[in-house]
Nucleic acid binder design. Structure first.
Lengths: 208, 208
DNA sequence: GTCTATAAAGGGATAGAC
DNA sequence: GTCTATCCCTTTATAGAC
């Protein structure tokens, strides 16, 4: 039997190297500014190998970005928040949502997908479904459950979730996308989430 | 005296033709997908003429986009809304803000500026200052005046404006940017604005 | 300032050997 | 599948005449 290969090394087939390099470059520089030569160089393979696995630059890009979208599917297990007081639950959800939104990989994905949504409509759709749409439905689900159990008074969970998500996001992410600021500190994030939750509960909370 | 030239025709110097063509193409296709050849063709001039007026493609792009940013400076005269009931004023502001946000020129600018903000940091900044930042300060100004005259109870106008803008925007613009929908109808827009204003006034309106 | 023509480099994609 | 070498087109930018 052959000796066990070093466990730290990933399989590192040529195909995997190509995908990894393409993801790095496409996400960092976008579609137009990334050449197939650059991808081949970064992957340490020849350009012909690229084309052995992907028929064209557009196909490679589409595959990479589509896969990347799935990294941003927000998850929220009922057991994580449903047992908490509503204010605490919404605060946790808001913080986690904002942390995802301003993470470097998510910012790159936003940039690239928005830039190329006209040329690659399926990517715009895939990104929306995986990220923003899932966020909305997860949050609406929570609001609905909280209302059914008597902890909130939300008549239209989707609209309410839309408003809350909008407040969380506001311009915090946009400021980073536009390079106005480098990032958002925890203090600013928490202040913003708190203000949003306060306003939300003023409207949808139970009146004392 | 020479006969008056046809009034309908704009001056149409070569430089103006170049700027006009560049704006159309850059805003529609973005930086990478627009070639200087295409700009020259669209403008009806030679490529050498382009370079007689702009030293490089990057400089032309920067000049065009920087100028474009100023088209999206929201204005709000006090006389337009300060005499209205608060709910009516906020509703009008929200509708106007959303109409601007989902207008084709603004969508193009968002796409292009976000896509190129890493390579052209000054454009990200210029766009933010002209658009989102001005929106925020105009709205905060209104909230502050309304509070001072006793029609609202807003302690921190900037934070409150940030929340309200976030609710107005929510994912309506993003859905168009990503190509998930073609546009937003008046009915949906109004429903959304109403929900946002309702929630806002629940929190910041005067009680009792 | 404006044109035609062209230089110089880079890019996507492929042929053919192994 | 993978490589080297190359084709062929587009792109940015400029030279030189008018």
């Amino acid at each position: 039997m052959a000796p066990t290969p070093p466990a730290a090394e990933p399989p590192a087939t040529k195909a995997a190297l190509v995908v990894q390099a393409a993801r790095r470059l496409f996400m960092e520089r976008g579609y137009g500014a990334t050449s197939m030569d650059a991808v081949a160089l970064e992957a340490g393979v020849s350009k012909a190998t690229l084309y052995a696995h992907f028929a064209s630059k557009a196909e490679l890009f589409s595959a990479i970005v589509a896969a990347e979208c799935h990294r941003f599917v927000p998850t929220l297990d009922e057991s994580e928040v449903d047992h908490l007081p509503v204010r605490e639950a919404l605060t946790r959800i808001g913080r986690r949502f904002l942390d995802l939104l301003i993470s470097p990989p998510a910012l790159s994905a936003y940039r690239v997908v928005i830039a190329e949504a006209l040329r690659f409509p399926e990517l715009g759709r895939a990104f929306y479904d995986a990220g923003p749409a899932t966020t909305l439905s997860v949050l609406a689900g929570y609001l609905d459950r909280a209302t059914r159990r008597g902890d909130l008074a939300v008549k239209d969970p989707v609209t309410a979730a839309s408003l809350l998500v909008g407040m969380f996001r506001s311009h915090l992410q946009l400021r980073i996308l536009l390079g106005v600021v480098d990032g958002v500190g925890d203090a600013e994030r928490d202040h913003h989430v708190r203000a949003a939750v306060d306003l939300f509960l003023d409207g949808y909370g139970l009146r004392g």
